[in-house]
């Protein structure tokens, strides 16, 4: 799958869905890169009591929002976004082994994830990878470790086994330490050592800095203007990834604002031409 949209939204939580619906209302074509609704933080909320007009459990509200997205004209892209980068007049996004392009991208990836392993960032690209479908082939016939959970991780584990890797699997829980000299060769899990040729860390969401190289952040939080603009032209952000308060109403509101700003930005591009 590949394609071109006016607006590509990374994240299918409240901010991403609100942004998608707003952009569709403004006549834009919209792609949404989304994990299943159950992976949204909202899903775990027992009761939402401060959203105007609706109340219920987090899972009920999240499912209703997701249905609204499914019923809309937006294209839902299932999978993990790996990289977002300006390509001159458009912004590109890599999702698994697919590639999409849009005039504007809205990052709505939810609460920021810090590295989960000691040594993860320093060994990235040297025996640590975030993308099994990208780098798996380089390790055919070798031993690799996968740290991760969820449907995406399962399908990646299958993929690695199919291409002939010996795969050690670990859930995201536990204490992980990555060791090596010029490259990672040992994974320590709760004190036990495993020798591996590559460690795949498959998180549902990458940190903002890993996802969008060069994006301005402060302690993992994306810096935005009130209009949802980031420091990168054509890249906007909304919801929990832009910081506290981590509230449904704030996320939905920011998604709406970022989409309107992105629409204006796209209209100004068309005028320039």
């Amino acid at each position: 799958m590949s394609g071109k949209f006016d607006i590509l939204i990374v994240g299918g939580g409240p901010a991403g869905i609100s942004a998608a619906l707003t952009a569709l209302n403004r006549g834009k074509s919209v792609g949404v890169i989304a994990n299943p609704p159950s992976s949204s933080k909202l899903y775990l909320a027992e009761e939402v009591t401060n959203y105007p007009g609706i109340s219920g459990s987090g899972s009920e509200i999240m499912e209703a929002m997701h249905r609204q997205l499914v019923d809309s004209a937006a294209t839902i892209i299932e999978g993990r976004a790996l990289s977002v980068m300006p390509l001159g007049s458009t912004v590109g996004a890599a999702v698994g082994n697919d590639f999409f392009e849009a005039s504007a991208v809205i990052v709505a990836t939810g609460i920021s994830r810090r590295p989960i392993c000691a040594g993860e960032s320093s060994f990235l690209g040297r025996g640590v990878s975030y993308c099994a479908t990208c780098d798996g082939m380089l390790y055919r016939g070798k031993t690799v470790a996968v740290i991760g959970e969820g449907a995406e991780a399962e399908s990646d584990i299958r993929f690695l086994r199919d291409i002939g890797c010996e795969v050690l699997t670990f859930s995201g829980k536990g204490k992980f330490d990555i060791r090596g000299d010029t490259r990672a060769d040992t994974l320590i899990v709760n004190g036990k050592e495993y020798k591996t040729d590559c460690i795949f860390i498959l998180k549902e969401t990458l940190s903002a800095e890993s996802l969008v190289p060069g994006i301005e952040t402060e302690r993992g939080i994306i810096k935005t203007t009130r209009a949802g603009e980031t420091n990168i032209k054509g890249v906007f952000a909304a919801g929990d990834c832009t910081g506290a308060p981590y509230q449904l109403a704030k996320a939905a509101g920011e998604g709406n604002v970022a989409a309107l700003t992105a629409c204006e930005y796209i209209n100004s591009l068309t005028k320039e031409k």
Partner: peptide, 17 residues
């Protein structure tokens, strides 16, 4: 690069530029 890799496909047009 390799064909199976999404990020590589994004790198392509940047190299062309």
């Amino acid at each position: 690069w390799a064909e199976w890799c999404g990020p590589c496909r994004m790198q392509g047009p940047i190299l062309d530029q």
